[in-house]
C-alpha cells in the first residue's frame, strides 16, 4: 500500500523581484538577479518550484569598517578601497551581489556628502558586474538626502536601495519610483507593521514586485527565533495569497551574527567556547542556514569563510530542484 504523502497546494507564489539591469535594459550590469518566486516552503521541491535560489550579497562599506579581526584579516588592505573590495568579493568569494553600506555619510562620523558617496557608488559599479544593494548610514535625515541623490545618480541600474521604515519611507519610496529602483522595507519583527509598511509604500505607487522585506532579524543566540517564526508566518501568508507578505525577504546576517560575544571573544577569555576562528565562522553560518529554512531570499554576509559554507548549504538543498 503506497503511502499518500502530503503535498500542499498553495494559491499563490512569493513575488519575484529583479535587481540590476544590463546594458540592453538601461544599466551596466553583466547579469541581473531574480529573487523570490517560490511556490512552496523553502527547499521542498516535491511540492513546488523554487524558481530562484537564495543569493548572498557580501557587505562592503565606503570607509573601512570597525569589524573584528577574524573577518578583516581575510581581506587585508582591500578594505580601504571599496571598488577593489567589491571585486574581491565577487571574484574570490563568488558573491551574487554587493551590499554597499554608506557608513561614511554618518553625521556622527565623517559626514560625507551625497556627492562623495555617489562617487564611491560609481566606482563600485564600475568594478563589478553583479547587481548592487545600497543603503545609507542609519541616520534618517541624512539618509533621505543621501539615498535620493544616489537613486538619481544611478538611474537605470535597477538597484535595491534602503531603508524604508514605518516612520520614514516616503523619501526613499519616491526616489525608487522616480529613478526605477527596488526598495528594502524594514519592520521591527512585527508582521503587522511589515504589512502596513508595504501597504503604505504601494499606495505611493511603487509596485509590489519592487519591495523586499527586511524583518530585522536577531542573530544566532540573540533572538534568531523571533525572526525565524515571523519569517515562517510571512512565507505561509504569502503562499496563502496575502499579497502584502508576498515579497522576498532579506536578512542582515553579517551584522547581527557578528555582534555576538560568541563571534568575537577569544578562547583565552572563554576557554569553554573553543577556538574563536571556527566559532565566529559558524556563528554567522548558522544564523544564515537557519533563516534559509524559513524563506530568506537574500543573505547579507561578511565572513568569506561563512559565505563559502552557506553557498555549499544552498547547493546541497537545491539538489532536487
Amino acid at each position: 500500500m503506497a503511502v499518500a504523502l502530503i503535498k500542499e497546494r498553495y494559491q499563490n507564489k512569493v513575488g519575484e523581484v529583479i535587481i540590476g539591469a544590463t546594458a540592453a535594459e538601461g544599466g551596466t550590469r553583466t547579469s541581473v538577479i531574480k529573487v523570490g518566486g517560490d511556490a512552496a516552503l523553502p527547499f521542498l521541491h516535491f511540492e513546488g518550484k523554487i524558481e530562484n535560489r537564495t543569493v548572498i550579497a557580501m557587505e562592503v562599506t565606503d570607509i573601512p569598517p570597525a569589524w573584528n579581526d577574524i573577518i578583516k584579516s581575510q581581506f587585508g588592505d582591500v578594505l580601504n578601497d571599496p571598488a577593489a573590495w567589491a571585486k574581491r568579493c565577487v571574484e574570490e568569494c563568488h558573491a551574487d551581489m554587493i551590499y554597499l553600506k554608506l557608513i561614511g555619510a554618518s553625521p556622527e562620523g565623517e559626514n560625507r556628502s551625497p556627492e562623495e558617496c555617489a562617487k564611491v557608488v560609481k566606482d563600485v559599479l564600475a568594478a563589478v558586474g553583479v547587481p548592487l544593494i545600497i543603503v545609507g548610514c542609519e541616520d534618517p535625515e541624512k539618509d533621505n538626502e543621501l539615498m535620493a541623490a544616489i537613486a538619481e545618480a544611478t538611474a537605470g541600474e535597477n538597484l535595491l536601495i534602503g531603508i524604508a521604515e514605518q516612520d520614514n519611507y516616503k523619501s526613499i519610496a519616491a526616489a525608487a519610483m522616480v529613478h526605477k529602483h527596488n526598495v528594502i522595507a524594514r519592520s521591527p519583527l512585527d508582521i503587522n507593521i511589515c504589512k502596513q509598511l508595504n501597504i503604505l509604500i504601494s499606495e505611493m505607487g511603487l509596485p509590489l514586485n519592487r519591495i523586499v522585506i527586511d524583518p530585522m532579524i536577531g542573530g544566532l543566540g540573540y533572538g534568531i527565533e523571533y525572526a525565524y517564526s515571523i519569517m515562517e508566518r510571512a512565507r505561509l501568508g504569502a503562499l496563502a495569497n496575502d499579497k502584502m507578505l508576498s515579497m522576498p525577504m532579506i536578512c542582515t546576517v553579517g551584522y547581527e551574527a557578528n555582534r555576538a560575544k560568541e563571534a568575537n571573544a577569544a578562547e583565552e577569555e572563554f576557554p569553554g567556547w573553543g577556538d574563536l576562528n571556527d566559532r565566529a565562522i559558524l556563528w554567522e553560518t548558522l544564523t544564515a542556514t537557519a533563516l534559509l529554512q524559513v524563506g530568506a531570499s537574500i543573505l547579507l554576509m561578511r565572513n568569506p569563510a561563512a559565505v563559502r559554507l552557506v553557498q555549499q548549504n544552498i547547493n546541497d538543498l537545491m539538489e532536487n530542484a
Binding site: L220, G221, G223, I224, E225, Y228, S229, E262, E267, G272, W273, G274, D275, L276, N277, D278, R279, L282, W283, T285, L286, A290
Partner: peptide, 19 residues
Amino acid sequence: AKAHVLPLMALRQNLYTDP
C-alpha cells in the same frame, strides 16, 4: 570540538524556546 558544537546547541536552544 567545542567551537563547532556550541553554535549548533545555541540554535537548538533558540528554536526550542517556547514562544
